[in-house]
Nucleic acid binder design. Structure first.
Length: 229
DNA sequence: GGGTCCACTCAACGAGCGAT
DNA sequence: ATCGCTCGTTGAGTGGACCC
């Protein structure tokens, strides 16, 4: 997934969940944060950041904050990117657990929910829910970074899809390199972590991939081991 | 009065949709 | 094709209800 023009900056402060003040070429600018989650580990004062330049005149901010450097590792924080990256990778047959599919579609309704991706492959059809992971601790990629009732709901819906004969996958995109393993963040959200384990036992496939964060691109890379218990 | 809980609103943006 | 509107996103902040 390619971005447009990128500039580097230094984070000054997060004004609210949407807006950060960033020094770009020594000048203080307002930037839209493309992730409304907590990101407390990442959005520290003086952090090096990357921003996409927008020429949309209707926007209140000229810049979008898309990546943050933590301990010399760049972390992509764009909450919309994982969806696109996984869509591109599946369409190109690069997710080896799924292989080459006949078709893949985005944002497809199922029951009361809407899953990120739907695919068909021979007689098989399945749903995929994509989750972006930006939290890393001691080499472990962790999700979620804040309690997520929506996340738990998605897992339960995926288990329902399995019961109805679909295949169902939850794919965690670790938006950085350098993590050895993915595991749910039990300390942050026990319900989510337990639901994930239960869903896996019911046949939901749990996958994790890391990603290469280039200056102006995010690319799905290697599968990571998933530890659920 | 102080503390807790809940419902509600708000923020900036992009996507989707209907109207023109 | 272009527009303007609505909706979804999720934590912070606010105000009201309630209990001690």
């Amino acid at each position: 997934m390619k971005y447009g023009e990128i500039v580097h900056g230094k984070l000054h402060r997060r004004v609210n969940r949407f807006i950060a003040e960033v020094f770009i070429h020594g000048k203080k600018e307002a930037a839209h944060i493309k992730n409304t989650g907590r990101l407390t580990e990442l959005l520290q004062p003086d952090a090096d950041v990357r921003l996409e330049v927008s020429d949309n005149p209707n926007r209140k901010t000229k810049y979008s904050l898309i990546a943050v450097c933590k301990n010399h590792i760049w972390v992509n924080i764009d909450s919309q990117a994982p969806n696109t990256v996984v869509f591109e990778a599946i369409a190109a047959g690069k997710v080896k657990e799924l292989g080459m599919v006949n078709m893949v579609k985005r944002e497809v309704p199922f029951g009361d929910s809407r899953f990120d991706l739907y695919f068909e492959k021979g007689n098989e059809s399945g749903f995929i829910e994509v989750k972006g992971v930006t939290l890393e601790k001691n080499g472990l990629a962790l999700f979620p970074d804040a309690p997520t009732s929506r996340g738990t709901k998605h897992i339960l819906e995926l288990a329902k899809a399995v019961q109805k004969g679909y295949s169902a996958t939850i794919l965690f995109v670790v938006q950085m390199k350098g993590c050895s393993t993915f595991t749910p963040n039990k300390e942050m959200d026990k319900t989510f972590s337990e639901s994930l384990l239960k869903a896996a036992q019911q046949g939901v496939q749990i996958l994790a991939y890391d990603a290469i964060v280039k200056v102006d691109e995010l690319v799905l890379d290697d599968p990571l081991p998933v530890v659920l218990s």
